Simulated assay, not measured.
Amino acid sequence: MPPIRSVHVALWAAYALAAMVNIGAVMADAEMARRLSQPLFAPLLLAVLLTAAPHRSRTTTLLIGGLLCAWAGDSLGQLLPQSAQLVTAAGFLGALIFYAAALAPLWARTRDAMRIALAIPYGAVVIGLFVACADGAGPLLVVVAAYAVALAVMAFLSAGGNGLTWSGGTLFLLSSSLLAMDWFLPGASIAFSTELVMLTYTVGHALLIAGMIRLMPRRRWTACAPGAALVIVES
């Protein structure tokens, strides 16, 4: 195995470990372990991406932007507890916009009737949650509305990549839906909701990035045949 691929695999293992530590910390109510492990998610996925991408492209740049916004959502909310909900929502709103922009060209090349039909259930989930959570959102109503639209669009566009991006986008939708119920529907009672939020978030984020890496025409450890010319066309 080429050294760069070994590093790539090791980074995936480190991400899985950080996710398991975080979920275990949530279950054990170990606040310090949770606070220390969560900010590691996005940097590890960023390193995974950079060890796979052979060159800087529009898609790679957008994914980097999304991961940086996700890091802000994971980290800055802990540093600003008085504005934690606003900072977290704003960070992940930015991430969803970047991810949707990266997924849009893939959707445009592979759209079909079945995938277009996904707009109905995804839209219904987001609209239903927004209506249910609107009263509890208070001053965050505008941010929640923007987040709901971006979430539905990203989940919808994720179906245009491959099975990994599709699964990742759907889990992102599920994670954010559970989090919205936790934040804005105090009467809602879902067993292990916080653990489920983190599980669906960490797995969904990993699947989305893994799917985008798989869609790259070449990875850093992929060798060209002798004398062959590699032409990468990206719209």
Rank of each mutant, 00 (worst) to 15 (best):
L96G: 01
V144G: 11
L174G: 10
L106Q: 03
G123K: 13
L151H: 02
E195Q: 12
W166E: 05
A117M: 13
F156Y: 06
V142K: 07
S176A: 13
S158I: 05
S177R: 10
T88A: 04
G161C: 02
C133D: 15
R109C: 02
L118T: 09
F192V: 05
N162C: 04
L141G: 01
L86N: 14
S167Y: 12
L93V: 04
L174F: 15
G168D: 09
L174Y: 14
A101V: 06
G136Q: 10
M114G: 08
M114Y: 15
L106M: 07
G163C: 12
G128R: 15
S176L: 12
V87A: 02
P139H: 11
L96I: 08
W183G: 01
I127S: 04
I127W: 13
L157G: 02
L106A: 02
F192E: 10
S158P: 02
F184D: 09
L86W: 15
A101T: 05
A152E: 14
C133S: 13
A137E: 13
L151E: 03
A100F: 05
P121I: 11
A150V: 10
A90M: 05
R115K: 06
V197I: 06
A188G: 04
A137H: 09
R109D: 05
M114E: 14
S176Q: 15
D182M: 15
T110I: 03
A119L: 05
A145L: 09
G161M: 03
A148E: 09
L118V: 11
T170A: 07
Q85P: 03
I127E: 12
L196N: 09
A150H: 10
L129I: 09
G163Y: 14
W166G: 00
A152D: 13
G163P: 13
S177N: 10
L118F: 13
A113K: 12
L93R: 02
A108Y: 08
V142N: 08
V149H: 08
A152L: 11
